[in-house]
């Protein structure tokens, strides 16, 4: 498969995005809730990192922290975010605005609300282009037409003066992608970009996102809860659970030989066409609430292979095959593995 030729984060190229020990907490009257706890990962140029997990696992929050869209009372309490080797989590507001506009693009879930209904797509594109590139109005418009063509809008020169409601959902999502690409960003954060679309359109949009990495070397952080989307698109996958990274590794490895018991359960719960539906595995219990995360491993109450140390000591990411998993089962150093 083509994506197997893509560079990995462990290759020589320095990562576009590096997140180190990121902690995001919400400070409220009832105390502090750690929504992201010690999250680390990196994305290489041209690579697509899929981020999966249940609702509330912290996928979107990770994206928001990277773009700088954390809403009060949430804030970054620790760790670092590096974009092409430069720290961006502690930049002053004005500078952050420049950086995230030029170097990070964002694609959101709902194409119906991602575009301003009162401006033509051309106006929105040229506005964004003009914010970042020193181009004349005419050149910006030409660039907008180019972008629309690139994301697969037929007859872009005619459609550029149309309003968002003239476009179908899938076409609108293409416009949103064009909008995210305006300034040729190094990194695109796609937060559930296909959830609101029907399956056939989904495949087209995913192909489009994949092409970004191939042709422009854009790194993509693809946030989704759909394993099918991940399997089809991502080079590597980060599985999140209760605000922590449970396992991270190459897509094929994660799908075929998952290591973390949570990933094992997650893969077991994905229906496969041709198999008997009654064989689907369900993980008992539910993800802990943020104010009741158990000590040690966050997954310990639901884990079938829980050991004594899981209840008290929190596992860090450890090598597990070609992946890394935060599970004491992988601990070969102290010889305590099962």
């Amino acid at each position: 498969m083509q994506r197997d030729q893509q560079p990995r984060s462990d290759a020589a190229a320095p990562p576009i995005l590096e997140v180190r020990n990121l902690v995001v907490a919400f400070h409220g009257l009832a105390g502090t809730l750690r929504a992201l706890d010690d999250v680390s990962f990196s994305i290489a140029p041209g690579e697509i990192l899929g981020v999966v997990g249940e609702s509330g696992a912290g996928k979107s929050l990770t994206g928001a922290a990277v773009i700088g869209l954390l809403e009060r009372p949430g804030r970054i309490d620790g760790g670092e975010i590096l974009l092409a080797g430069r720290r961006i989590d502690n930049l002053p507001h004005a500078q952050m605005r420049k950086v995230r506009g030029r170097e990070i693009g964002a694609i959101f879930q709902d194409p119906l609300t991602s575009l301003n209904p009162l401006l033509t797509v051309g106006e929105q594109l040229t506005e964004t282009i003009a914010t970042h590139l020193a181009l004349s109005a005419k050149a910006a418009r030409a660039r907008a037409v180019e972008l629309l063509a690139e994301v697969g809008i037929p007859a872009p020169a005619n459609r550029i003066d149309d309003y968002p409601h003239h476009f179908s959902g899938g076409m609108r999502q293409r416009v949103v992608i064009a909008l995210a690409l305006c300034a040729n960003p190094k990194l695109v954060i796609a937060d559930e970009p296909t959830t609101a679309l029907d399956v056939s359109v989904q495949a087209q949009i995913l192909e489009l996102i994949r092409r970004l990495g191939r042709e422009h070397g854009t790194a993509v952080m693809l946030i989704t809860h759909d394993m099918g989307v991940i399997a089809e698109t991502a080079d590597r996958v980060a599985v999140m659970y209760a605000g922590r990274v449970a396992e991270i590794g190459p897509t094929r490895e994660i799908i075929e030989t998952p290591h973390h018991p949570y990933t094992v359960g997650l893969m077991g719960s994905v229906p496969v066409i041709g198999e008997d539906a009654e064989d689907l595995v369900q993980i008992d219990g539910s993800m802990p609430r943020l104010n009741a995360i158990p000590p040690g491993c966050a997954f310990n109450p639901r884990c079938g292979e829980v050991m004594g140390r899981c209840l008290s000591q929190r596992p860090g990411l450890m090598p597990a095959g070609r992946s890394q998993a935060a599970c004491w089962l992988m601990d070969t150093v102290t010889g305590d593995a099962a």
Binding site: I67, G68, L69, R97, K98, R100, G101, R102, I104, G105, A106, F108, Q109, D110, T113, S114, L115, N116, P117, L118, L119, Q124, E127, T128, T131, H132, V176, L179, A180, C182, A183
Partner: peptide
């Protein structure tokens, strides 16, 4: 999302207010 997207692209708060939110 379009307001969020505008914020991500670095449009200033005043421009977001006048150009995106006010007309809507």
């Amino acid at each position: 999302d379009y307001v969020k997207a505008a914020r991500v692209t670095g449009v200033s708060s005043l421009a977001i207010l006048l150009k995106h939110i006010l007309p809507n």
